[in-house]
Simulated assay, not measured.
Amino acid sequence: MRKVHPEFAYQARELEGQIEGILGDPPDHKNYKKMVEALRTEYVNGGGIDDLNMMAFALVDVIEFHDPKAAFADAEDFEYGDPARVFGAATCPKAEGLLEALEENHPDLARQAIITALLHKHPRMWDDEDTSLDRLAEGDEGDDEDDYADDVATDDFTGIFDQQED
């Protein structure tokens, strides 16, 4: 299992929710297909929304990974990475010109969208960083609980709050 940047894990979960939300209950595959096609057309024509989830949504059903390890190598760093390596690891034979347009017009954001789509498509190949309180407390001996025991308020200070009328 590979560790991925927490933001990529978050984006992959968001993509799942977005797909489910657009499909609806019961699933409306016709509406879903229209939305995805409209997004892809916008991106191929050089436009489209500068949004990571929208790009991942446009890619997720048509992207194929011939070198997923190369794309996974970039999943550890959300902000900085090698767009060329990530673009080189994928193809979109069902959406001609999509990857090329994204690489030309939005290379860094599209790199993140490709990795998000990869994580969505291969959820068993990666592991989210554990940021639970139990995990964060590991190794903490709790010795900071009494650090302030010696800091006792003086009578002058407490007297401010204990004013009595004469």
Rank of each mutant, 00 (worst) to 15 (best):
R2H: 13
R2L: 11
P6K: 13
E7H: 09
Y10M: 04
E14S: 01
G21H: 06
P26H: 04
P27R: 10
H29I: 10
Y32M: 03
Y32I: 02
K34P: 05
M35D: 03
R40A: 02
T41W: 14
T41C: 03
Y43W: 03
N45G: 06
G46W: 03
G48Q: 01
D51G: 00
L52G: 01
M54R: 11
A58H: 00
L59M: 04
V60A: 14
D61S: 02
V62C: 06
I63L: 11
I63H: 08
P68A: 07
K69F: 04
F72I: 05
A73N: 09
D74T: 07
A75E: 01
D77L: 13
A84L: 15
R85G: 12
V86T: 01
V86R: 02
V86W: 03
T91C: 02
P93W: 05
E96I: 07
G97R: 12
L98E: 11
L98T: 09
L99E: 00
A101E: 15
E103L: 12
E104G: 12
N105E: 06
H106K: 01
I114C: 15
I114W: 04
I114D: 14
H120A: 13
K121N: 13
K121H: 12
D134R: 14
E138H: 06
G139L: 02
D143Q: 15
D144S: 12
Y148F: 13
A149F: 13
D156T: 05
D156R: 05
F157M: 08
T158Q: 08
I160H: 05
I160E: 13
F161Q: 02
Q163N: 14
E165W: 14
D166G: 05
